[in-house]
C-alpha cells in the first residue's frame, strides 16, 4: 500500500501524552531556554504530535524567504488530503539572533527599525544570481499597501510624499509574481 508523508505523519501521531508541553514551554524550546530534562520530554512529544511540531515551526520561522515555508504551509493547509513530495525540499533558514525580534539579512537596507533620515534614502538588497528584478512594497503599520514599485534592480528611491514624518512603516521585497523574498521589515520616519 502507498502512503504519503502526511499520512505517515498522522499514522505515527499519538495523543496520550499525560504531560503535554504548554505554549510557554514550546516557546522556551524555540529560544533554547528550556531545562535539559524538560527539553527532552518536549522533543519526544513533538515526535508524536504533528500539530505541536507545526505550531513550533511557525514560531521558529525567521522570514518568508524560502521554499521550506511553502512546504510547511502545504502541510498545514492541505492536511491529510494532499500527497506532498517529501525528499526534494531543503530549506536553509536561520535561527533567531540574540536580542532581536527576528533575524535580518544585514545586506538588505534599511535594517529593521531604521530611522530614514531623508525622504530619498534608498532601499537596497543583494542582486539575486539570475539578476531577476524585485518589487518594493511599502505598507502602513496596519499592513495596508501604500506603494508598490515597478520591477527593478536595487537601489530604489523612496518616492517623495509616500510616507509621512513621525510614522512607522513596513516594507518587503517581492519577486515579479508577488512572492515575498525578504521582509517585512519596519522603518520609522523622524
Amino acid at each position: 500500500m502507498k502512503v504519503s508523508a502526511q499520512e505517515l505523519s498522522k499514522l505515527i501521531s499519538r495523543q496520550d501524552d499525560t504531560n503535554p508541553p504548554t505554549a510557554e514551554e514550546l516557546a522556551a524550546l524555540v529560544d533554547q531556554t528550556l531545562p535539559p530534562d524538560r527539553r527532552e520530554a518536549v522533543l519526544n512529544h513533538l515526535e508524536r504530535s504533528p500539530d505541536s511540531a507545526r505550531a513550533v515551526a511557525i514560531a521558529l520561522e525567521p522570514g518568508a524567504t524560502s521554499g521550506g515555508a511553502g512546504f510547511r504551509w502545504l502541510a498545514v493547509a492541505a492536511s491529510a488530503v494532499a500527497a506532498v513530495a517529501l525528499a526534494s525540499v531543503v530549506w536553509l533558514g536561520g535561527t533567531p539572533e540574540e536580542d532581536t525580534l527576528r533575524a535580518a539579512d544585514p545586506s538588505i537596507s534599511p535594517a529593521p527599525g531604521a530611522v530614514i533620515s531623508t525622504p530619498d534614502d534608498l532601499f537596497s538588497w543583494p542582486a539575486p544570481p539570475d539578476l531577476s528584478p524585485r518589487r518594493v512594497r511599502i505598507m502602513s503599520a496596519a499592513a495596508e499597501t501604500i506603494w508598490l514599485s515597478e520591477p527593478t534592480s536595487p537601489p530604489v528611491d523612496l518616492p517623495a510624499g509616500t510616507v509621512a514624518s513621525g510614522k512607522t512603516y513596513l516594507w518587503q521585497l517581492e519577486d515579479v509574481d508577488g512572492t515575498v523574498v525578504a521582509g517585512p521589515n519596519w522603518f520609522r520616519m523622524p
Binding site: R48, A53, S66
Partner: peptide, 11 residues
C-alpha cells in the same frame, strides 16, 4: 518524525 510533520532540515 519531525521531517514527516513538515519541519525543514535547519529547523
Amino acid at each position: 518524525s519531525l521531517r514527516l510533520h513538515g519541519l525543514a532540515v535547519n529547523e
